[in-house]
Amino acid sequence: MNTRVLIALDTLDMTSTTLATARSFFPHAACHLLHVLPAVPQTVSSLGGPVVLVGTDQPSRNEAQQQLRALGDGELVDGGDPASEILRRAASDAFDLVVMGTSGRRGLSRMLLGSVAERVVRESARPVMTVRQAGHGPASRILVLTDFSSAAHQALSAAQQYFPDANAHLLHVVSPTALTAPLSLAPAGRAITAASLAARNREWVQEAREQLARLGGGEIVEGDPAEVALARARSGAYDLIALGTAGRDGFERLMFGSVAQQIVRESPIPVLTARSLDLAVQGA
């Protein structure tokens, strides 16, 4: 069964890195292009003075329609909210995956598209591949960043499903602060000592090794998860990063969400993200 890919385009031109990367990574997929036309202020006069109406003028739409047809099959949406339009389609059964860029060309466009991408990554019911720079697929070397959460398992499953011939390298990054900071984890009335911290850390690392072994093996390193992943991405050793968009619960979930946002914003290679199935069902 062919993968059905929704490609969200911020520009309608042949030089689109998002479109080129999507076609490179999914050469046999059924692709559907989506472009949301910006709302163009139009001023008309009335007895009470000028009135500004928000809409898309017809000549611009006609031109955009011709440009879209030159790129492939797809649809235009007049003056909608890009993130909402993408998420609505991702929540349907029409698509398996969303591909989109993470930044516009300049100025306000760049900032707005970045926020659109972050919202789609957080809320999409389907896996999302974000593109900051042109990538070349299909992916043969994938870095899978895992915290062993449901979302991380979904990201691994998506990577294996869409790139079955790729070599997936699992990486678990232990933050130094996670190993030393949380005093609240001490049993009531018992002081935390260096020895108890060391024992707990050994237990965490051993648990991580066991979980990695069950997944087929991987690597454990200490550091800032986003910075470690981005350094690996910049090394040229990988074609794609895959990760979940939320951690296990509470503060850990918040922190892993921020890790995903930083990687999506800064990664020089495409990033495949996925949510927990439970969260995706709740948000749909």
Score class of each variant (00 low, 15 high):
249 D>M: 07
4 R>G: 11
9 L>F: 09
246 A>D: 07
119 R>W: 11
141 R>M: 06
103 S>V: 07
117 A>M: 05
257 G>R: 02
278 D>Y: 06
228 V>L: 01
22 A>E: 06
110 R>G: 06
21 T>C: 08
106 R>I: 06
151 A>K: 07
261 Q>E: 15
209 R>S: 15
224 D>E: 14
95 F>H: 13
166 A>D: 03
170 L>R: 06
157 S>G: 02
112 L>N: 04
118 E>A: 10
119 R>A: 12
163 F>S: 02
203 E>M: 13
264 V>N: 11
184 S>Q: 12
270 P>N: 05
265 R>M: 02
142 I>H: 01
31 C>A: 15
74 G>N: 10
144 V>T: 03
78 D>E: 15
5 V>Q: 07
85 E>N: 03
126 R>N: 08
38 P>D: 12
200 R>P: 04
262 Q>A: 14
67 Q>A: 14
259 V>T: 15
32 H>D: 15
34 L>R: 09
226 A>M: 10
223 G>H: 08
48 G>E: 09
183 L>F: 11
204 W>M: 14
132 R>P: 01
218 G>N: 04
120 V>D: 00
165 D>C: 01
231 A>L: 02
256 F>M: 14
159 A>S: 09
209 R>N: 15
31 C>V: 14
217 G>S: 05
161 Q>M: 13
110 R>A: 14
270 P>W: 04
242 A>W: 01
93 D>R: 15
86 I>F: 11
122 R>T: 11
252 E>H: 13
63 E>S: 12
257 G>V: 06
171 L>G: 05
82 P>L: 11
105 R>K: 11
52 V>H: 00
257 G>C: 09
237 A>F: 11
25 F>G: 03
254 L>K: 07
168 A>R: 08
96 D>F: 03
228 V>G: 05
207 E>N: 13
